[in-house]
């Protein structure tokens, strides 16, 4: 289990990094926290010719609140992100999601940007970003663009990033009064990939749901908003029956496949159950 040979580049500036990505394109792979990439290198499932280590790029690990969202530099470590005051105050969904990611020492190293760019359909942060309707800023020599989370995740391990682009920051919409959220997942062991996961974000006005976003992961090929569930909830007050209906709508909307540890039927059932629980909790939080 040793990586195949590669060339190692450690750019000191963003311009230099983007130049390397422009030069090497698909031959290059960005090394951020490395918690997913390095095992893939060691198993030789990933064999980049050039590894661009972005860890020393200056100014990319900040976490700050501004204009209705929290901006997280791509190199913000997951553990720091989950406990950062702006996140604790304004993005409680992320704070709920982070402890489910791996383990203490891997969260110390794993980055927010790396997790988003990796686009693992079983990962927590992409799901949270989609549920919140957040976005990512991608930079290349050609310029910068902001891509909505809904458009960022294409399929399992595939994002809208072009080979010459670097994800430089993520934007996490802040929750204000009347907003409530909940993150639910079930894994066989603490820190494992989930058998089912969901994130629910609700906005309540006059004791009715004004905005409802229910997203699921793990059972879909990318973190996916379930509009059927949102529509069911819109304009309503949540009770146990409605939460269950939202869960059923989500369960109907997904089409999982049998996996090593769980049948498709279980994953579908679990998704419904977790959505039901998340809707109830988000409602409580929003009240």
């Amino acid at each position: 289990m040793k990586p195949a040979p590669f060339r190692y580049e450690r750019p000191e500036t963003l311009e230099e990094a983007l130049g390397l990505l422009a030069e090497h394109g698909e031959e290059a792979k960005v090394l951020a926290g490395g918690q997913s990439l390095v095992p893939l290198l060691s198993m030789r499932f990933a064999r980049p010719a050039v590894l661009v280590d972005v860890n020393r790029l200056p100014g990319l690990d900040g976490i700050a609140a501004e204009n209705g969202h929290v901006r997280a530099g791509t190199l913000a470590r997951q553990s720091a992100f989950g406990e950062a005051p702006p996140v604790l105050e304004r993005v409680p969904l992320a704070t709920e999601a982070v402890p489910h990611i791996g383990h203490f020492a891997t969260r110390n190293r794993g980055t927010v940007g790396g997790s988003i760019a990796h686009a693992d359909a079983r990962a927590e942060l992409p799901l949270a970003l989609v549920a919140l309707g957040g976005s990512a800023v991608l930079a290349s020599r050609r310029g910068r663009r902001e891509v909505a989370a809904d458009d960022l995740f294409v399929t399992h391990f595939t994002s809208a990033l072009e080979p010459d682009e670097l994800l430089v920051e993520t934007l996490w919409p802040a929750a204000g009064p009347g907003w409530g959220c909940a993150f639910e997942e079930l894994a066989l062991r603490a820190g494992d990939y989930a058998l089912g996961m969901t994130a629910c974000v609700l906005h309540i006005e006059e004791a009715r749901i004004a905005v409802a976003r229910v997203a699921v992961g793990a059972v879909t090929d990318r973190p996916t908003v379930i509009p059927e569930a949102g529509e069911l909830l819109a304009g309503e007050a949540v009770d146990a029956t409605l939460a269950r209906e939202a869960g059923r709508a989500a369960a109907r909307a997904v089409d999982p496949v049998d996996s090593l540890h769980a049948s498709a039927a279980y994953q579908r059932h679990l998704t419904g159950l977790l959505v039901e629980r998340a809707v109830l909790r988000a409602w409580e939080a929003a009240l």
Binding site: L186, L188, L195, A262, S263, Y266, H269, L270
Partner: peptide
Amino acid sequence: LTAPRVWE
């Protein structure tokens, strides 16, 4: 006796 197997 994992959760998915028991649930089945």
